[in-house]
């Protein structure tokens, strides 16, 4: 199986449900957001439009972040998902410089969400594997994929703009849609061979 995601930007309404679903699923600390949705404008005044583009980790086939990692903390899982082992990461941030998609963040500090209060039991439970001073990123909801589920951002998308599937299977929905719609990865010219495709 090879992890693949297709995002149909024609269907994306910029509701940020995927961002929230990701935060709830992963319990990411304050300031950490694996599933960014970038806003951008197209057209010229007065005929302008605000558009959105979700920018998750592209889980590249040739990930530059993995190549530069000096300790081997960044690995490519057999499903194609790119992961970071917090126990191996030294926090050098070379991967953040190398990633052309801003997919990685540095966990400077784990702080409670509610100022002046302790972390909630939910936060404590969800954040038990996070380590300050390491680099964190989307792991493609690997634990969900291994259970046969879709990543939470895909499951929650209200317009069905995100399709998840196996890129190795030519008969999978995602493979057929990529072939028929002319979907393309973001900045394919960089040679990182992203596993996330977009229909612009």
């Amino acid at each position: 199986m090879k992890f693949g995601m297709l995002i149909d930007l024609r269907k994306c309404v910029g509701c940020f449900a995927c961002t929230i679903a990701c935060k709830a699923e992963k319990g990411t600390p304050t300031g950490i957001n694996y599933n960014k949705v970038k806003k951008y404008e197209v057209g010229t005044y007065p005929s302008v439009k605000l558009k959105h583009i979700p920018m998750p980790c592209m889980h590249c086939d040739n990930p530059s972040c993995m190549e530069v990692c000096p300790t081997g903390a960044t690995q490519k899982h057999e499903t194609g998902v790119v992961t970071v082992d917090a126990n191996e990461c030294i926090g050098c941030k070379a991967c953040m410089i190398a990633c052309p998609y801003e997919s990685r963040q540095f966990l400077w500090e784990i702080k409670p969400y509610y100022e002046g209060q302790e972390r909630t039991p939910f936060e404590v439970y969800k954040q038990k594997d996070f380590q300050e001073g390491t680099v964190v990123k989307c792991n493609g909801c690997l634990e969900r994929i291994q259970e046969g589920l879709e990543p939470s951002c895909v499951q929650t998308c209200i317009t069905g703009a995100r399709i998840f599937g196996d890129l190795d299977d030519p008969n999978s929905e995602i493979s057929r849609l990529i072939a028929s719609s002319g979907a393309v990865p973001f900045q394919p010219e960089l040679g990182t061979e992203p596993s996330v495709y977009y229909i612009f």
Binding site: E67, C69, T71, G72, E88, C89, I90, C92
Partner: peptide
């Protein structure tokens, strides 16, 4: 000093990633 986990710096040598510029 700039490392998030300076105490783990030795992992750079133990990692054996000799194509990493940092190594």
């Amino acid at each position: 000093i700039d490392l998030g986990k300076p105490a783990r710096a030795i992992k750079v040598l133990l990692g054996g990633k000799f194509n990493s510029p940092l190594t």
